[in-house]
Simulated assay, not measured.
Amino acid sequence: MHWDPHKYVEYAGYRNRPFFDLTGRIAATEPALVVDLGCGPGNLTAALAERWPGARVTGVDSSAEMIRQARQRDNPANTEFVPGDIRDWTPPDGLDVLVSNAALQWVPGHQDLMRSWLRALKPGAWLAVQVPGNFAAPSHALMRALAGAPHWHRRLDGVLRHEDAVSEPQDYLELLLDEGCEADVWESTYQQLLHGPDPVLEWVRGTGLRPVLAALQAAEAAKFESEYATLLRDAYPESEHGTVFGFRRIFAVGRKLG
């Protein structure tokens, strides 16, 4: 699946805020090694490097486009970016802080990966994860319903797996506690005010709609987007202030005890 770094960073203020809400709960003071797993275009990895200038901060992403974009930034000297697949990644020795922001929803079975990472981390190390929890929202429910319609089902069967993409907050809390962590888990719903024509469509083009677009030819993709945009306009009507797009996110921060 192709990722467009420029499309991804649209609405950067709204997309970045959960990262800072997440990492604000990490109380590490002088970590030596920090990893941003699923780092995207690297702008938030750089923020970690600026927060902990004495640490070596590594951004990891499976997208060559994202890694290329990240390396082209004017990054702090203590930052590096490497390609890597979350499914195959293992914590390096001495890791102090592991952050994964809005990436694990793409990885089936990521809960088992989290367990394996926690078992490999040293006592005192931190794991901080944020995933979207809005898969039941109209934006995603309508996408799934349209993909399952008779005229799209053959082309899009099995492309979307949103129903089981993430767990509920209690599940992540129990996972962290079971693996011997001091845990902090919560959820927030951000009431995002978007502007312009079809703003919710523009939002999901950067993330949730990517698998659909990747599965279709250009003409098909344009037709799907047109039908989907009509459904979104009814679900998210524009007001005099703009279009309100509520977005639920789930946060889990754990510090390994021992």
Rank of each mutant, 00 (worst) to 15 (best):
L22E: 07
P92N: 06
Y228H: 06
G148R: 14
L175Y: 07
A12M: 02
R15G: 13
V212A: 09
M66V: 08
S188H: 11
F247M: 07
L22H: 00
D112N: 14
A128V: 03
A55H: 00
E10Y: 05
T23I: 08
G42R: 05
Q69H: 15
Q130P: 03
P169R: 02
A120L: 05
A214K: 04
Q69W: 10
A70Y: 05
Y228G: 08
D157P: 11
D164A: 10
R115W: 00
Q191I: 05
G109P: 13
W152Y: 00
F81Y: 12
G158D: 13
G24A: 06
Y172V: 01
V253W: 10
M114K: 01
P53W: 13
R161W: 13
L201C: 07
D85C: 13
A165C: 04
D164T: 07
E179S: 02
G54Y: 14
S100H: 11
R161I: 07
R51Y: 09
L104H: 08
W52E: 06
H2M: 10
L201V: 09
P83A: 04
D85R: 12
P31T: 01
P138F: 00
G54K: 13
A12C: 01
V82D: 02
Q69R: 13
R71W: 12
R115K: 08
C39P: 00
E187K: 06
I67L: 12
W106R: 07
E227S: 06
V60P: 04
D4E: 03
I26G: 09
R249C: 10
T58Y: 04
S62D: 00
G148S: 09
L194A: 06
E80P: 06
P18I: 03
V159R: 04
E182R: 04
V253P: 06
H241D: 12
G38R: 03
Y11I: 14
P92K: 14
Q105Y: 03
E10N: 11
H241Q: 15
R25S: 14
Q192M: 12
G133K: 09
R248F: 04
T207P: 09
A145M: 07
L175K: 03
C181K: 05
P150K: 13
A136S: 14
D85K: 14
T58C: 01
V82P: 01
E50T: 05
L118I: 12
S167A: 13
P138Q: 05
L160Y: 09
T230H: 03
A214T: 10
L216Q: 08
D157T: 14
L113S: 07
P41R: 05
D171Y: 06
T207F: 13
T243A: 14
V34M: 00
A103T: 15
A46D: 15
A102C: 11
A147Q: 05
A183F: 00
Q72V: 10
A229N: 10
P5Y: 03
L232I: 02
V159T: 00
G59N: 11
A120W: 04
L216S: 06
H6D: 15
D85A: 07
A70K: 08
G158M: 10
N134D: 14
L231A: 09
P92D: 02
C181S: 11
P237G: 12
P92S: 15
T79I: 15
